[in-house]
């Protein structure tokens, strides 16, 4: 028995080895490099200047009144990224949760068809999808022509925060639906019956049983939408007409300007903030699961 067990372990290790090497080379080592660059200057001497710069750099922006105002450059950019990412995530959640629920209760055939429909956009290139939204949202684009046809509009969307949010929601929506759906589809219907039996009406079944049990799906959905939206730069460049400089744009800009150490510092701070966010969410979910 014992021998067999050991043999099994050896096989498992052998199978996992390639991934281990991969993870080490392409995940762990690059992360260490990011930290290393973030805390060194161009001569690779230790410094915290890059980090400090993120929190203290100031610049002048013009205000609506015509004057100028001094702001903390990177904190403002970070706040803007966070705001847009949170708005997009909340919209994805509000649309995705009911969709996933309805989907999980549909007949097997309908489920298959709808899942395929949700996945199809993911098979198309991300850049092409974003370009498509440019064409739709332009002042003379498809949206405004449709609105004109019914006697409405025109609306100015392109180049606004709304356009950036629409782009993010469209691109990351499947990442919200799929994890929630997969948890909901596995939900034991006997628990729903038990809840009804014990006095729950439809709303109470949802609030006291289905929602708490689907929390793991919600958490991974939120994570999978929030993280790419907070660090995106492409969507804001194309749909925001470059007016909304986001944290991803900042990293890209510094990198392109060959300012690797500061780019690494921004990436490092972003990573720490995201890790803290995820840890807090996980703790909330665990507390909810025990309470």
């Amino acid at each position: 028995m014992k021998k067999e067990h050991n043999a099994l372990r050896a096989v498992q290790r052998a199978v996992l080895a390639p991934y281990g090497v991969w993870a080490l080379l392409f995940i762990v080592v690059p992360l260490l490099f990011v930290a290393y660059y973030a805390f060194t200057d161009s001569n690779f001497a230790f410094t915290t200047d890059n980090i400090t710069r993120f929190f203290t750099a100031k610049s002048q922006v013009s205000t609506d009144a015509g004057g100028t105002r001094e702001v903390y450059t990177y904190l403002l950019i970070f706040w803007r990224s966070l705001k847009l990412a949170i708005i997009s995530t909340v919209i994805c959640l509000l649309m995705g949760y009911p969709t996933a629920y309805i989907l999980s209760r549909a007949s097997e055939r309908v489920q298959k068809i709808l899942i395929t429909l949700i996945m199809i956009p993911m098979w198309m290139n991300f850049l092409i999808r974003t370009y498509a939204w440019m064409t739709i949202l332009q002042d003379t684009g498809i949206l405004n022509r449709l609105l004109a046809a019914v006697g409405l509009g025109p609306v100015h969307v392109i180049g606004t925060e709304t356009a950036v949010v629409i782009g993010m929601v469209y691109d990351y929506f499947p990442y919200m639906i799929l994890p929630i759906y997969s948890v909901m589809a596995k939900l034991d219907m006997k628990l729903v019956e038990a809840a009804k039996d014990l006095g729950c009406n439809g709303w109470n079944v949802m609030r006291r049983v289905i929602f708490p049990l689907s929390l793991p799906g919600v958490i991974s959905g939120v994570t999978m939408v929030l993280i790419p939206s907070i660090s995106t730069f492409y969507i804001s460049q194309k749909l925001g007409n470059g007016k909304f400089y986001l944290i991803g744009d900042a990293i890209e800009g510094q990198y392109v300007a060959n300012n690797l150490h500061f780019a690494a510092a921004i990436a490092f701070i972003l990573m720490i903030v995201l890790l803290v966010c995820m840890a807090l969410m996980q703790r909330y979910a665990n507390r909810k699961a025990v309470a």
Partner: peptide, 29 residues
């Protein structure tokens, strides 16, 4: 509907709520 009937069920596989502890399962109704 079931939730308005003064009748409760013990299910074959118990159907306890996994997200609640013993106390909260009993307190549920």
């Amino acid at each position: 509907p079931p939730h308005k009937r003064n009748v409760n069920t013990v299910f074959q596989r118990y159907a306890l709520f996994p997200h609640l502890n013993v106390y909260e399962n009993i307190a549920f109704p």
